[in-house]
């Protein structure tokens, strides 16, 4: 099973890093929860996220806004995603925690370590596919350089 989760994570990272953001909502169930927070907020159980989406529509709107409305300098990510740790399983739901590291590459070639953290996931099987019912992105730091456009 963990091998399948690792494969899901790899496909998720490739979709973002290859700029196939339109594929990104498809990794989630409907409804779902996708949020980006910090380790400190998570520890204190503060619920607000830098991004907070609890429907497929909100994920699609995020992509549409990035494509059509929001202004930011051309940039790309390279995700390095670690091995998932199995955190429990019940009622067809698998809980997993996976560390990640994201390098942001700006249009002028500047590369920065943009974010590190862990994905706290609730994963379910839908047909032949695994999907995220929840993906809580817990960044180790609460400090974001300039802006966060592309999802983590």
């Amino acid at each position: 099973m963990l091998e399948h989760v690792a494969q899901l994570n790899a496909e998720y990272a490739r979709a973002i890093d290859d700029d196939r953001l339109e594929d990104w909502p498809g990794f989630f169930t409907e409804p779902c929860l996708y949020t980006i927070t910090s380790a400190e907020n998570h520890r204190l159980k503060l619920p607000a996220g830098i991004i907070y989406a609890d429907s497929q529509g909100m994920l699609k709107d995020r992509v549409a806004a990035l494509r059509e409305a929001n202004i930011y300098e051309r940039q790309a990510y390279r995700h390095l995603v670690g091995l998932p740790a199995r955190m429990g399983e019940s009622g067809g739901e698998l809980r997993a925690e996976t560390p990640f590291l994201v390098v942001r590459i700006m249009r002028d070639g500047r590369m920065d370590l943009f974010a590190t953290g862990r994905y706290l996931d609730v994963i379910v099987q839908e047909g032949v596919a695994l999907r995220f019912r929840e993906r809580v992105v817990v960044c180790d730091s609460a400090r974001i350089d300039t802006l966060l456009a592309i999802p983590l």
Binding site: I51, I71, Y72, I144, T146, L147, A149
Partner: peptide, 25 residues
């Protein structure tokens, strides 16, 4: 109301729909 605030927080902050640009401009 709490859920409404969490969802509308997408509008603001470092990834905000109407504030992200203020981070770079």
């Amino acid at each position: 109301m709490r859920r409404r605030r969490l969802r509308q927080a997408n509008l603001v902050g470092p990834a905000g729909y109407v504030s992200m640009e203020d981070g770079c401009v």
